[in-house]
Simulated assay, not measured.
Amino acid sequence: MPNPDHLSRLDQGRDAWNAWRQANPDLVPQLRSAPLAGRDLRGFDLHDAYLRRAHLQGARLDGCKLREANLSGAELEGATLTGAGLVGANLRAARMHGADLTGADLKSAILVGTDLTDARLDGAQVYGIAAWEVTLDGAGQRDLLVTRPDQPRITVDDLEVAQFIYVMLNHRKLRDVFNTTTQRGVLILGRFGGGGLEVLRAVADTLRQHGLLPVIFDFERPRQRNYTETVVTLAGLCSFVIVDLSGPSVPQELQAIVGATLRMPLVPIVEGERKPAAMLADFAELDGYLGPPIRFDDIPALVAQLPARAIAPAQAWLARRRDKLAAIEG
């Protein structure tokens, strides 16, 4: 429950409240679950205020100072927060359906599980924001400012993309990891049963010997995405794909990679006299298809063929593509 004295002071109006805050700079207003729906709080100094689960539906908070305020779980449906200062504010699990955050300062704010359905975020400052599992259905997200005021302006139209851009701009190590993965990563797909995993691991060992970074898809099904979506995501982070078509489990994922229009080399391998999926013939016309399949009777025979029939052709294809893109850009 809110502190009765603090709630009473809030009732005295903006000037009296702000004077009280100024005279007590270290005091934290305790307004947990406060009944503030529809209240006119424009210009109120609520920095550091404890407003957890406060009822602020339809409240007017234009230009309100809410720096470092705890608004986790707060009810803010239809609230007006245009130009509000929410730097470092905790909006975890806040319900902000239809809230107007146009031009709000959300730098370093925490938005985890926040419901921003039909909210307006146009022109908000989102540098350093933590946005995870945010509901943004129907939300306006134009011109979100990713950079600090002292940096060149970079704006995007998606809150989650803004967070990604921020991370890429400000974490050099992450950029280096991303660049390394896209330049040296190789996705290896295939069957895991019947000795298939040993084949994939042997391929991975050979790739390591040539300075490449193997990525074997061998983990439990993600909770929020099916296998095919995850494979396509991994493929997009790698330079080329080696796919074992000796079993029945991979064609669907391979079709998804091709359907996602990822232009990258595809190197098929097939054990013994097994017949690969019929759809393999459809991939032969792709410029990135490096066939015919590499056939092998055992792992040593496969490993012996990989440098000349998989690694070298894939790297040559990638070099030609880089040269072509450079010519287009230059």
Results as ranks from 00 to 15, higher is better:
M1K: 12
R9H: 05
L10R: 03
L10S: 01
A19G: 04
Q22S: 13
V28H: 11
S33Q: 14
A34H: 03
P35S: 07
L41W: 00
D45S: 08
Q57W: 10
A59F: 01
D62C: 12
G85N: 09
A104I: 08
D115E: 09
D115I: 05
A119W: 02
T135A: 14
I165D: 00
I165Q: 01
V167C: 13
H171V: 14
D176F: 11
D176Y: 10
T181F: 07
T181D: 05
L189H: 00
F192P: 05
G196W: 01
E198Q: 13
L207M: 09
V215Y: 05
T228A: 09
E229C: 07
T233M: 11
L245R: 07
V250Y: 06
V250F: 11
Q252A: 15
A260S: 12
T261I: 10
R263C: 10
L266I: 14
E271M: 12
A277G: 14
A278F: 15
A278K: 13
F283E: 01
A284N: 12
E285K: 15
G288Y: 04
I294R: 06
D297N: 15
D298P: 08
P300R: 09
V303D: 02
A304T: 11
P307S: 04
A316P: 04
W317Q: 01
W317N: 04
D323Q: 15
D323T: 14
K324H: 11
K324A: 15
A327F: 11
I328N: 08
I328R: 13
